[in-house]
């Protein structure tokens, strides 16, 4: 599960896989916590001086403290309804923008995270076995092979204990 989440954050899942996983993240609170933790770790790695722990909970609290705007009396009910609908639409758009932004950030940050904290992202650090063929094909023509003999070939047959 955790591997899937990190793969998702690294942008390594297919669209349908990602959708399924996002659905699960929404429904399952444990998975959701993992999702949050992983992003928190990423934030800490990138900006250790400013950490937002439990950000979504805090936003929710603040939202509850916000004064409720009551429409002045005397207006037609229809009008009121329309205002409500409009503001609802606006907040939906806002949610959408925030979600979109977080997706963008997630994508961009993924490679950096992968490089900085390997333990958390086994999936992204390890070259998949099908990539070995490319590595091998590249290795044949790399000047490093000429300088260091075949020692570099160990890279192309490196095994991954986490790989199934």
């Amino acid at each position: 599960m955790k591997q899937e989440i990190s793969a998702l954050m690294d942008g390594e899942l297919f669209e349908d896989e990602a959708e399924n996983l996002l659905d699960r993240v929404k429904r399952d609170s444990d998975t959701h916590k993992d999702w949050e933790a992983y992003h928190l770790i990423g934030d800490v790695l990138r900006q250790p001086e400013c950490i937002h722990r439990g950000l979504s909970a805090k936003v929710r609290e603040r939202m509850q403290d916000e004064p409720t705007v009551l429409a002045p009396r005397g207006r037609a009910v229809k009008q009121k309804m329309r205002t409500f609908a409009l503001s609802a639409a606006a907040s939906l758009v806002a949610v959408g923008v925030v979600a979109w932004m977080s997706l963008q950030v997630g994508h961009e940050a993924a490679p950096q995270m992968a490089m900085q904290q390997n333990n958390l992202h086994p999936a992204s650090v390890q070259i998949k076995s099908r990539s070995n063929d490319y590595l091998m094909a590249h290795q044949e023509f790399s000047p490093s092979t000429d300088m260091n003999g075949g020692a570099y070939y160990i890279r192309t047959v490196s095994y991954n204990p986490d790989e199934k």
């Binding site: 942008g11 390594e12 490679p111 992968a114 490089m115 992204s124 650090v125 390890q126 070259i127 998949k128």
Partner: peptide, 9 residues
């Protein structure tokens, strides 16, 4: 099943 992406070794 090759997705876009970066891998490092």
């Amino acid at each position: 099943d090759d997705a876009d992406g970066l891998t490092t070794r």
